[in-house]
């Protein structure tokens, strides 16, 4: 981030350069993730990222934007999201105002017009003006297309949106263009946006959408990778404690819980432990801080019952 304009060509030269660059931006990733970014950049395809919550799906998009020093445009999906909120909307107020103004000057406009046909002809000219880009309020998708230098477009939690919206995205994703009935087709600026879609898999994404995207599944990281992630995010934490807490989290993930802790929870927990000046895990400490990593009372009770065994397993070298 220090340098003004990172050399994009250089970053995207190979999978490894992307990986190192992402790591420089404190996003530790597997080869698979770096390959995804590499392919997405070179093939100009959107990436659909799936995986359990909290494994860094959104973070990947943010970091990529950082890495390329491009603006990040984010569209959060929810049920009922429609084109007026995602693509564009007419500035009705402005249109109304201008209509009022026009009303007053109507006489001047129509002055000298002979007959009804000519009057209507003149009025038509105005009609076209009302539906021009001047009166268009761009929303995230359109903004992304209009970004001159390219941008990173993050369509977050696309599984929360309706099916209709999914279909709406198709044109955008395959051709980087949008059709606006009143104006015509709007094509991407010379650099099409890099698109990331994330999904928590609350429902199946349609085949049509999947077909247009690279599909990246981010699973929970293995012990080694997670330690490196913690190291990058919470560098102050002592090495031994880091090993222990990652081991503990991995024990939890093997248990049958309502919601297993994700990476973001591991990071939170690491910060918490750091704040408490802990230097190794013990059952009492874990019991007190369990609510940082587990979000259901049932889970907390379940884990509490086996806390001693779990802790001793994690602290064992």
């Amino acid at each position: 981030m220090a340098e003004a304009a990172p050399n994009i060509d250089k970053i995207t030269e190979s999978v490894d350069t992307i990986k190192t660059e992402l790591e420089a931006h404190r996003y530790i990733c597997s080869d698979q993730i770096a390959t995804a970014v590499y392919l997405a950049y070179h093939l100009r395809k959107p990436i659909l990222i799936e995986g359990p919550p909290g494994v860094g799906k959104t973070e990947l998009a943010k970091t990529t934007a950082d890495m390329f020093a491009l603006p990040l445009i984010r569209l959060q999906c929810y049920e009922g999201l429609d084109e007026a909120k995602a693509i564009y909307e007419w500035k009705y107020g402005k249109q109304l105002l201008y209509t009022q103004v026009l009303k007053e000057t109507l006489d001047e406009v129509l002055q000298g017009a002979k007959g009804f046909a000519e009057s209507v002809g003149r009025l038509h000219e105005f009609g076209d003006i009302f539906f021009s880009e001047e009166f268009l309020e761009p929303r995230p998708l359109m903004k992304a297309l209009k970004a001159e230098e390219g941008c990173v477009l993050l369509i977050d939690e696309v599984d929360k949106s309706d099916h209709e919206f999914e279909s709406l995205l198709l044109e955008m994703l395959s051709d980087y263009q949008l059709s606006i009935p009143e104006i015509g087709t709007l094509k991407a600026a010379k650099e099409p946006p890099m698109v990331f879609l994330t999904s928590n898999n609350t429902r199946e994404i349609s085949d049509a959408l999947k077909r247009r995207c690279l599909h990246l599944y981010i699973p929970f990281p293995d012990v080694d990778l997670e330690q490196r992630i913690i190291n990058a995010r919470v560098p102050e934490i002592p090495g031994e404690l880091r090993r222990q807490l990652v081991a503990f989290i991995h024990e939890l993930r093997d248990m049958d819980l309502k919601k297993v802790p994700a990476i973001s929870e591991t990071i939170d927990w690491a910060r918490t432990l750091l704040l408490l000046h802990a230097d190794s895990l013990d059952p009492a400490l874990v019991r007190d801080t369990l609510n940082v990593i587990l979000k259901f009372q049932d889970d907390i009770e379940n884990v509490n019952a086996e806390l001693t065994t779990l802790t001793s397993k994690a602290t064992k070298t």
Partner: peptide
């Protein structure tokens, strides 16, 4: 096009790339 980009030389890279493109 993915294969054109990564080639057949590196088996791991090939697998990772195809894993992004084909299975969904």
């Amino acid at each position: 096009s993915a294969v054109e980009l990564v080639g057949y030389e590196d088996r791991g890279a090939l697998k990772r790339s195809l894993a992004l493109v084909l299975p969904k």
